[in-house]
Amino acid sequence: MIYKCNNCGGNVIYSPEKKAMHCSHCDSLESQNPTPQNSLEQCANCGAPLKLEEFTSAYKCEHCGVYFILDEKVSGVYLPHLILPFQVSRAEAKEKLKQEFKKRIFTPLAFLSEASLSKMEGSYVPFFLYDYTSQVDFEGKGSKVRVWRTGNKEHTETSIYSIQRNMTIDFDKIPVDASIKMNDSVMDLMEPYQYQSLEAFQEKYMSGFFSEFYNKTAEEMKNRAMDKAGRDSETLLQETIQGYSSVTTLHKDIHLMEDKIHYALLPVWIYDFRFRSKTFQFHVNGQTGKVIGKSPISISKVLLYSGSLFVFLLSIGFLIRGIMEVFS
């Protein structure tokens, strides 16, 4: 699909600021006229040949600059159930990055001014969202120790308890990215997305952005979701067993039941910076604005700030000691 403006014929794209379809040529709102893009080889707007990657579902024609969505990659088996439209605009994402760099004290000052943007694109990343019901059953023995003194004797009282726990955890939409290109750990750090903004899939939200369809099936990606659910179940179980000095497990069972799997597109801004002949990639959550990415580290700043902290802490320590000594 290519969204063309009814008024001027320009490319209508989804604007996160206006929360509406917007033609940047004539400033019209919701003036879109969908034109199908069925061919995988040719741009339906200018006829230029397309060089698409294997999993591409939305792209920008390198020749005429029009954003198009490959209809057959977002329909049928590829039809997403849900989409979370971009809420952070291009300008806001850039501002978030700037703030983040300021917070990163070890990043060279020059990075902000010298780094050049070599790539900046909004992309919908394919995710599978898994619903699980986790049934947790635990049986164990816990001991509490109390120590007290009378005269020159020390008494140690050890009490043994039987611990039984049974809980049901209702996991809702545990996200796992279904894109090979996207680094798993980076995608995990992008979380969480606020799911209340999820909408039933509408193709128009993709206009103006890049996208992929799922690279692997939900079945193939399942293990990562189950790992996450299992880990969280374990943590939640441990949180209910408190106040013991030691616990031995007699029986533990965490059983996950799969309820529903949603195929969703979630928004990410991808920025590539060139700085002193190296590329630094940053991801900005297209909904929350959370920034993930490694920035360069200036050794001299690390030394300066760590060294200063050390000297300051020493000064404070010795001054406090000095004051204490004067007081006594």
Binding site: I160, S162, N166, M167, D170, F171, A229, R231, D232
Partner: peptide, 22 residues
């Protein structure tokens, strides 16, 4: 751990700490 838990917390069906001996 509770980010994706419906209702923000697990349903506790059984929570028992029974004193055995000391």
């Amino acid at each position: 751990a509770t980010t994706y838990v419906n209702g923000g917390k697990p349903n506790l069906n059984q929570v028992q700490d029974i004193f055995l001996t000391k």
